[in-house]
């Protein structure tokens, strides 16, 4: 029996013939939540687009590897037409430009429900109001009549979530759903995503540059750097026991309300696709770099039951870490 909904293996992505992402491996179980974390240019959004079938709009394509949903091939963009709304739901980055400025919120919802045929026995309009209530909007009847510009960013993002789950998809994909929002609203939206996907037994792919955001709603997380997955494992374990130097640095650079100590930045900047080093792509910025790191690209190796790291010195780092050297 297979419990896997989505599986990516050795996925590579190119735009205009330039390979920007390579050897991405991860899987999403039915009803489970996976996070993808990395900084700008790490390839996390491209990976997300590959899964969402929207690479072609930016001139990109999957150049190698496999992408399977329920065992069916997804590397051909044409496969998506039947999946959108019903199997795959998307929550976009910027909620203001993701709603038609000339259409009422209610019209958006009714349009979607009618097309997906998910009104059920309660009628399209009632179903729309019900969806708005489910995403935590007060006075949903009133919101139905409003235009996008009359809502706050957080409210619009809730509407986008309502639209994404209108077809009861099996997989919800959220690409940086909170970047355009106030910090105070971010947490609510992430918690809503986590809660809804658990209740509806939907799988979730949550993309963010913030490990903290991802940790609130996911069970597994993939950390990406310069177009590769450098660490993958259960979210809790990764947060408590990061094995890749980049993940470590990312955690150290994260502001937090509890710890008031100094933030430690990561020295240097990520390499651009034109100037990727031959060896490990994090090597130029890594404090643990050694000769072997500069020769070959490290691949993901298991370091625990389901924890994988792409680093030649992962074992030593743990020891060094425990010895308090870092």
């Amino acid at each position: 029996m297979t419990n896997t909904l989505l599986e990516a293996s050795e996925l590579a992505i190119e735009i205009d013939g330039r390979q920007l992402v390579s050897s991405v491996n991860f899987s999403v179980g039915k009803g489970s939540a996976v996070g993808i974390v990395g900084e700008t240019g790490s390839g996390k959004s491209l990976t997300c687009r590959a899964v969402a079938g929207s690479l072609s709009t930016i001139g990109g394509r999957i150049s190698a590897g496999n992408l399977k949903l329920n065992g069916k091939d997804l590397t051909d963009p044409k496969a998506y037409a039947k999946l959108y709304g019903r199997i795959i739901g998307l929550v976009p980055q910027n909620s203001l430009s993701a709603l038609n400025p000339l259409m009422r919120i209610g019209t958006h919802l009714i349009e979607t429900i009618k097309i997906l045929g998910t009104g059920g026995g309660i009628g399209t309009k009632d179903r729309a109001i019900d969806l708005l209530a489910r995403v935590g909007l007060h006075k949903p009847e009133h919101v139905m009549k409003q235009y996008p510009h009359q809502l706050s960013g957080g409210m619009r993002q809730r509407v986008m979530i309502a639209l994404a789950i209108a077809g009861r998809p099996e997989l919800l994909i959220a690409d940086e759903p909170t970047t355009a929002l106030d910090v105070s609203v971010q947490k609510d939206i992430i918690e809503l995503l986590g809660q809804l996907t658990r209740e509806e037994n939907m799988a979730l792919i949550l993309v963010s540059h913030d490990l903290g955001v991802v940790s609130a709603a996911t069970e597994n997380v993939a950390v990406m750097y310069s177009g590769m997955v450098v660490e993958y494992g259960p979210t809790k374990e990764l947060l408590q026991n990061p094995r890749h130097p980049y993940t470590k640095a990312l955690l150290a650079a994260r502001p937090s309300l509890e710890h008031t100590g100094r933030l430690i930045g990561i020295p240097g900047t990520p390499a651009t696709p034109d100037a990727w080093p031959t060896g490990c792509r994090f090597a130029p910025r890594c404090q643990f770099v050694q000769d072997s790191c500069l020769q070959n690209v490290p691949t993901l190796q298991s370091v625990g039951s389901s924890h994988q790291v792409a680093c030649y010195r992962a074992d030593e780092i743990e020891i060094l870490d425990n010895a308090g050297e870092v």
């Binding site: 959108y84 739901g89 998307l90």
Partner: peptide, 20 residues
Amino acid sequence: SFVQAARTRGVPRRRIVMRH
């Protein structure tokens, strides 16, 4: 992005053109 978003909700091309 709202045109792209409409497509990812399964809205058919014809309706995207006429309504969006």
